[in-house]
Structure formats: C-alpha cells, structure tokens
Design a protein around this nucleic acid. Sequence first.
DNA 1: CACCCTACCAAGCATTTGCTTGGTATGGTG
DNA 2: CACCATACCAAGCAAATGCTTGGTAGGGTG
Lengths: 201, 201
Amino acid sequence: MSAVSTPEAKNEPSRREQLLTIAAQLFAEKGFRNTTVRDIADAAGILSGSLYHHFDSKESMVDEILSTFQEALFAQYDDILASDDNARSKLERAVRVSFEAIEEHGPEVAIYQNDADYLVTFERFGYLADRNTQSRQVWLTLLEEGVRTGALRPDLDVTLTYRFIRDTVWVAVRWYRPGGQHDHTEVADQYVRILLDGISS
Amino acid sequence: MSAVSTPEAKNEPSRREQLLTIAAQLFAEKGFRNTTVRDIADAAGILSGSLYHHFDSKESMVDEILSTFQEALFAQYDDILASDDNARSKLERAVRVSFEAIEEHGPEVAIYQNDADYLVTFERFGYLADRNTQSRQVWLTLLEEGVRTGALRPDLDVTLTYRFIRDTVWVAVRWYRPGGQHDHTEVADQYVRILLDGISS
DNA sequence: CACCCTACCAAGCATTTGCTTGGTATGGTG
DNA sequence: CACCATACCAAGCAAATGCTTGGTAGGGTG
C-alpha cells in the first residue's frame, strides 16, 4: 500500500475542480460575459494570469461546467423514459428530478438558463442546442404518452404545455434557495399538484 | 393655423424615441451590459458619440425604456384590482394583461427579466425593486381573495403559487413571437385553463 | 440675411478585458 | 541530491468600451 498524494486519490477536489466551482458561482451570479477572469482569480485568491495554468480560456471553464452537469442530468431523464411507470408517475418524476437539479446544481442550471443563448452562437457549444432539443423530446414524449393513455386531457396542447412546464421548473433557479422556507421536494410536490389538478377549488 | 414641424406634432416618433426603440431591441437581445453604445449607434446608422447628443448615458436609455413601460403596465393592474369582478375573473384578467404586454412590449419585458437584478444595484434604479414588490402584492392579493371567497383551493400555498405564475407568465417572453403559431390571447387561454383546472383528465 | 436649434461627425482618452510570456517556489519521487 | 510536475507571480499587450470635446451641416424663423 503506497501512500497517495493526488487530491483525487484522497477524495478531495483538485485545484482545478475548486476553481471550476468558484467560476460556476460567479457565472451564475453575474452571467458569463459579465464575469471577468479577474473576478474569478480574485475569488480564488490568485492572479488572473494564473488561471491559464489550469484552463485554456474562460470558455473552456463554462464548457466543462455545463457539459459535466448536463451529462448527469440527461442520464436521469433517460432512466425515467426507460422505466415502466405509468405516464403520470413519469411526469412527476421528471418534475422532481428537475427541482432536485436546482437544489444540487444551482449554478450550473442558472448558467444554462442565462447564457445558453449566447454560448450556442459558438461552434464549440453546439451541443447545448442538441441538449435543448433532447430535453424538448423528453417532455413531449411524456406528455403525449399521458394524453394517449388517458391520464391527461385529450384536448391538451402539448407543445404549449411543454413550454409552461419547462419555464416554471427551470426558472425556479432564480428564487429557490437551498435551506430556505420550502425544500425542493416540497416545491416539486406543490407544482405537480397545481400542474395536474389546477388551483381551482 | 400655423404649419408645425416637430415630429410629435406630426404624430411621428421623435429621433429620440426611434433611438430608444433601437436600443430596447438590442438590450433585449444581448442584455444591457453586453450591448455597447457602438452597437446601438451602428444599428441607428450614426457614430457612438452622437448618441450623447440625445442621452446622458447608456443607463439613461434603459431607465427611460423601463420606467415608461412599467408605468403603463401597473396602471392596468390597478384597474383590475379596483374592479368588482370576482376573484377568478380578476386572476384571468391579470394573466391576460401580462401576456398582452409580452406581445406589445416584448423588448421592455425581456430587459426587465434579464437585467433588473443588475440594474437594481444602482440607486437610480431603486424603483425597479419597488415595482417588484408591488407586482408581488398584486398577485398575492388576487390569490388570497380567491382562497377567501372559495374560488381557489383552501390549502393553496399562495406564495409558491405566485412564484409559479409569475415565472411562467413572464418567462414566456423568451419564446413568444408575435405572428407565431399561437397568438397571445390563445396562449393566455391555455395557461389560464391549466392553471385553474390542471392537465389531468 | 443673421441667427439658432437639431442632429450629427471626427478624434481621442482612460479604463477594462482576455490572454501571453518568462520566471519562481514547493513538495514529492527516483 | 537531481529532477520534475504543480501552482503560482509579475508585467504587460492589443482590443474593446463608455464617454468627452470641439466642430459642422442644414433646415427653419425673425
């Protein structure tokens, strides 16, 4: 048994990962374009030039932040689609998974919400557009299955419904704060209830 | 009857107003901080310095854009609150007014959605925070009245419901396009229906 | 014709920004 | 002890950005 010394082996975040966490928080707070490399370096206690020892560019940083997160998120959606729950349960699970992502990966969600439109204009971020299409497909599949199996109203406009759900779920990242008045499972409960049954008495 | 020559008297937009319209579109597209005065000047076909003949600063431009819009919007909310419709109708009207604002003042809504958090950090934009509080009050009043009068479920979490409604309604500015597949009244119809009765069969 | 107002140009300045370059300190590892 | 990888500093550059200054063109108005 030889002694190990790399951070990974000790189950600690590497310096690189630490810097990405710091960058993600700043990108989420101020937006990608409005966060300077000097902001990130200051928050990390180093000089801006030193960041370039770890990363090629500011873009590489968001790239790594977003692609890592999305891979994990879409793996969860795939699980739901592959399961043999009924349509209603799948829809519920999809909503819950999303609010959970806000809880656990708030900065990543916020960056995607705020900066994806801009980033997509660069070739290297083309995968963001693909993920967007994929996400749309997930929700539409669930909604259409719901209508087909009779769980949802037959007259439902699934395209519009998809947009409403997507907006409400993901924009919650703007106000949801871990440790706040409602925890994420409670928020998901309330939204599922309203979505399925409405607010009428 | 003397001949008049000012744009206002001829019912034409003044140069100042034209420039504000151009600026609003750019601010909405790229964000306030990421729109340069040169961008605005280019779009208007003049040099960047010439903008300062019309406006004190870039900030003055958003200021005028946002304050003008909000004044008109909140006058409509006040009308609704003052009316003697029942709670359900008032809620419906509030939703409709909001989607209508997206139709008719898309850039203004987008700027508020994207840049208010940043702008509020400046004293001169303190009124944006006031408007935010005011808007919250409008929705909470309507929801509470609904619960009180029995139109809405007695167990409704009005705070959470307010957030869900606000998010869905205003974030629609990201995807709603005038002249697109659904017009704004149709979008409002569908959302009101889902909000009140849910998507379940 | 003299005057003036509106709308603009031409040139530039100070600051901020992403990134580069060449070097240094430190703690393992053979 | 020699070597090397990791993590950083110090200094600076080119481009972009908000805004300033002094001037000009042209259409009304008395």
